[in-house]
Design a protein around this nucleic acid. Sequence first.
DNA 1: GTGCAACTTCAAGTCAACTTGAAGTCAAGC
DNA 2: GCTTGACTTCAAGTTGACTTGAAGTTGCAC
Lengths: 156, 156
Amino acid sequence: MTLSRHDQLTIGQLAERSGLATSALRYYESLGLIHAERTAGGQRRYARATLRRVAFVRAAQRVGLSLEEAGEALERLPAERAPSTAEWSGVAATWQDRIDQQIAELEHLRRKLTGCIGCGCLSLTRCALYNPQDRAAATGPGARHLELPRPEELAP
Amino acid sequence: MTLSRHDQLTIGQLAERSGLATSALRYYESLGLIHAERTAGGQRRYARATLRRVAFVRAAQRVGLSLEEAGEALERLPAERAPSTAEWSGVAATWQDRIDQQIAELEHLRRKLTGCIGCGCLSLTRCALYNPQDRAAATGPGARHLELPRPEELAP
DNA sequence: GTGCAACTTCAAGTCAACTTGAAGTCAAGC
DNA sequence: GCTTGACTTCAAGTTGACTTGAAGTTGCAC
């Protein structure tokens, strides 16, 4: 685990430190989320700040953003230095809203479920879990894992 | 919107009442989640109880279960009648745990984020959003949207 | 200068949960 | 009896976020 000179990271080192696979890092680069210098032989060398960008993307994913949305958010932050408090708090506030909404939806479902245990239900006439018409129609093709609010509802 | 005799539902009627596309219902059938009688001509006719099964699956998805896991849960409930309070409350309790864990994880992230706004951060040395080593390594191939606890950690 | 792990590219595969399309059949109202 | 919309099957496509594999190249330690 020797460091390259000028404290640049190889893709393997970045992978180890970020917890991502090297293939994932190359994929991120193909999406323009991160960027690497190249050695004379063509190997990637990452600036130390790249670790911050990767961490940002992972955090964004945990908030429910897609990689594309994470990239848009990254564009509003400086590429090579740490963001200022003002720059960061705008992004963070948006994320807070998202998290709050996700929590609210889960708590709603939790309340419903509690009621259902009480009523011994799944009877079509009374159970609150039925007729979730609020989010009935699908939002498009492809996998859709948790029915969380779509990001565009929260655009800043 | 006339009902077939014997109050059976066509796939179109079930789709309308459940909020799912007919293609999704056929897909569910291919997975063994629901079952249909057939007319002489080969068309599907669903028993009324199928609406309950579909609603159950949708609720399971909202709790974060995959269709396969929803199917396993369905196997522990009676196929053609409403479940008893005891039968249902076991399943519901498991779901409550899942929801609670999801909420807890989101609140954890929320707290971190609040701290980060205060510290004006994303500085590698201090930011709590960094080094989420707790869940660093990937859990497998394929899409992985929110890093929530895997269901097997909650098996009853 | 040699050995070998770590790197390179590129195309193709994976996964879940569906959707879409083609080409044909059924059921029910007039 | 005819029309028309709803149904049938089956194969293939879609989405996002990656992984896998093949075939070749680099970089560093000895």
